[in-house]
């Protein structure tokens, strides 16, 4: 009974107990936070999981201190073009990748520390009319970009010092690629979702960038975005979000779907379906393993278990302001919840 009284009942009867507040950091100099992420950072022989916060004009790196406090290590000033996204680079250390632009990405930059000359630096990776970018294993970045005539899909390999080493061009589909996901369980397989709801599969080994298959997702939800892909028992499972799906009586308001494709036949079937809590709309989502999180237009954050197809937690808007950002940390089940004023709360899930 005591536990029951202490557990706040949240909107729509969902409970907060699956999210435990671990710590909070506040960037007092931040005018308008645009993204948050985590990065492994090594200094003086000590490797720690640090938090990266981005506002339009700068990106800050925070290290954990004692008693769940955070200290700012460094702030990179990025200049005229606003930051719009932090691009996590899996399995890297001392490297932060950011996307800058106005409505669309116009530039990708790396932020790093150079031990050669003991300086925090930034370097340009790519410019153009960039539609999608993803950090993938082996310190690589894949991106799609458009010129008037054609689309380019390419991969850049980065050195430990943040220099661009090699490039590889992938065969582009006719339609614009809006999102990428590496295929877990199949080395060198990459998928993308396109503007007309196709899933494309590439081989991204060093020799070829073949487009192996194009499969249609279905017309029911336009502009689906892939967040995660994995291969199991000969099927390709893709986690999709549906930012623009309309509510229907039969399905409610779809947020995420897991769809199984047979890449040999291009046939597919829905496996699991996760809906927004009743009465909620709008979402900007992030997926890690079987967990998905999204900011809703009410200013709440919803968390789903994608294998159960159920919303498992709902963080109500903070009294000081609604949530604006929800991202999973690169390791462990840690949710980073951010507000526009630069406050970031870390929750254990």
């Amino acid at each position: 009974d005591v536990a029951e009284q202490l557990t706040p009942v949240l909107l729509d009867g969902l409970r907060e107990e699956s999210l435990q507040l671990v710590s909070k950091l506040k960037d007092s100099s931040s005018s308008c936070a645009v993204d948050v992420s985590t990065v492994w950072w090594e200094a003086a022989g000590c490797r720690e999981l640090c938090v990266v916060t981005a506002c339009e004009s700068s990106v800050s790196l925070w290290k954990p201190l004692a008693s769940d406090h955070w200290g700012k290590i460094y702030t990179w000033q990025v200049g005229e073009i606003p930051v719009i996204q932090i691009v996590p680079l899996p399995d890297t250390c001392n490297l932060v990748c950011i996307a800058l632009g106005d409505l669309e990405i116009g530039e990708i930059r790396l932020l790093l520390y150079s031990s050669e000359n003991d300086l925090f630096k930034q370097s340009l990776v790519k410019t153009g009319n960039i539609k999608a970018v993803l950090g993938i294993k082996d310190r690589r970045l894949v991106s799609s970009s458009r010129t008037v005539q054609e689309q380019q899909v390419d991969i850049v390999s980065l050195s430990e010092m943040g220099r661009c080493k090699d490039g590889q061009t992938l065969m582009p589909p006719e339609e614009t690629v809006l999102a990428f996901a590496e295929v877990e369980g199949v080395r060198d397989a990459l998928v993308g979702t396109t503007a007309v709801n196709s899933i494309v599969v590439w081989s991204v080994n060093l020799k070829t960038g073949q487009l192996l298959k194009k499969m249609h997702v279905g017309y029911s939800y336009p502009a689906s975005i892939c967040h995660r892909a994995y291969s199991d028992s000969g099927l390709l499972f893709v986690v999709l979000s549906h930012p623009h799906a309309k509510e229907s009586e039969s399905c409610g308001n779809p947020a995420f779907r897991v769809v199984a494709f047979n890449p040999k036949t291009a046939r597919s079937t829905g496996v699991m379906f996760s809906s927004l809590p009743p009465g909620h709309a709008g979402r900007q989502g992030d997926v890690k393993d079987a967990s998905a999180a999204a900011v809703l237009t009410s200013g709440a954050i919803a968390v789903w278990d994608l294998l159960l197809g159920q919303c498992t937690a709902l963080l109500p808007p903070d009294p000081e302001g609604g949530w604006a950002l929800a991202r999973w940390a690169t390791t462990s089940a840690c949710l980073l919840a951010g507000q526009r004023d630069g406050t970031v709360c870390l929750y254990q899930y």
Binding site: V183, A189, S231, L235, K264, T265, R267, T269
Partner: peptide, 23 residues
């Protein structure tokens, strides 16, 4: 998911599609 819905399934789909794709 049944094989009748999705057609014949191959555990080596990636290798097979890679071998079939034009270089």
């Amino acid at each position: 998911c049944s094989e009748s819905d999705l057609g014949p399934i191959s555990l080596n789909w990636f290798e097979e599609l890679s071998a079939e794709a034009p270089p």
